[in-house]
Simulated assay, not measured.
Amino acid sequence: MPAAPMKRGSNAALTREIPNLRGVVLGVALASSEPVLNDNLVVATLLCDDDHKVLSDEHMVFFNQLTEPDLSVTQLAAAAGGDVEQVEVDLDDVPAAVHRIVVVAYLNEGMGHRRTLGQLRDARIRVLNLADGAELVRSENLAPALTGETGLVLGELYRHEGGWKFKVVGQGYPNGVVGIAADHGIGL
């Protein structure tokens, strides 16, 4: 049964609600009626410290780097359930230095082709229980609020009082991956 949609800025205390939760799958659904736009969408997962800065270049999970050094966060080869990308997170194995796991989407070459995320009809993120596939969290459709952005922070899994919470973010970037990189300490 799908979870009730959560609005931007809302969060859910995952491990407080489900104390035996050991792993999750972060699923991203992005859809446009324009195939060129769909083909140029990139989903990436950033493993960040408490200051929202990526630990290193090896702590970014995306199509060119499907896992990080500790193998606790892995982009799955095939997504299911309507998601275009899915990332598996083994909560017990996430390195102690990682405080936030941030899921972003951006247009590869979006600015040069005059395409924007405002052309999306659907942009959502959800959290599934790795053990049984049950949907724990689903964001509202973030697409209607997008206009000229070429980058988007969909949501973040973060440590809180010894457990894990999830927050729907929905922050757009008019300068795409460059803006996301600047905010998260990534050198391009």
Rank of each mutant, 00 (worst) to 15 (best):
R115I: 05
K165C: 14
G27Y: 05
Q75V: 04
R115L: 11
I125A: 03
L142G: 02
K165V: 04
P2M: 12
D122F: 14
A77C: 01
R8I: 14
F63K: 00
L91W: 04
L37N: 00
G118L: 11
R124M: 07
V178F: 10
T45L: 11
N175E: 15
A145W: 04
N20K: 00
I125Y: 02
H113E: 11
R115V: 02
N11M: 05
G82N: 05
A77K: 03
L142Y: 06
I125H: 02
E58F: 08
A3Y: 12
L47F: 00
L146G: 03
L30S: 03
V98F: 03
G148A: 13
G176V: 03
L188K: 12
T67W: 11
D93R: 15
E85Y: 08
I186P: 05
G179F: 05
N11L: 09
L188C: 01
H59P: 07
R124D: 02
W164H: 07
E161M: 14
H99I: 01
G163N: 06
Y158P: 00
G170N: 09
L21K: 07
S56D: 13
G170C: 10
R121K: 12
R121G: 09
L120W: 04
L91I: 03
D122I: 13
P35R: 00
Q75E: 09
P35E: 15
L107V: 07
N129H: 02
Y158S: 01
H59T: 08
V153A: 01
L128D: 09
L41H: 10
G112L: 13
E161T: 13
T116S: 15
V98H: 06
Y106Q: 01
A134S: 12
Y173W: 10
V98K: 05
R124G: 01
E58Q: 14
Q86T: 15
D39T: 01
K165F: 06
P19V: 12
V127R: 02
L66P: 04
I180W: 01
A4S: 08
N11S: 13
G82S: 03
I101H: 03
L21Q: 08
I101D: 01
V177N: 07
T45Y: 10
V36G: 09
H99E: 14
D49T: 03
E140M: 08
Q171D: 12
S10V: 04
A134K: 06
V177L: 10
E17G: 05
S10D: 14
P69Y: 04
H52R: 11
V98P: 02
L117G: 04
R114H: 13
G112H: 09
L152M: 08
A80Y: 06
D70V: 00
P35H: 00
A31R: 13
G170S: 12
P35C: 11
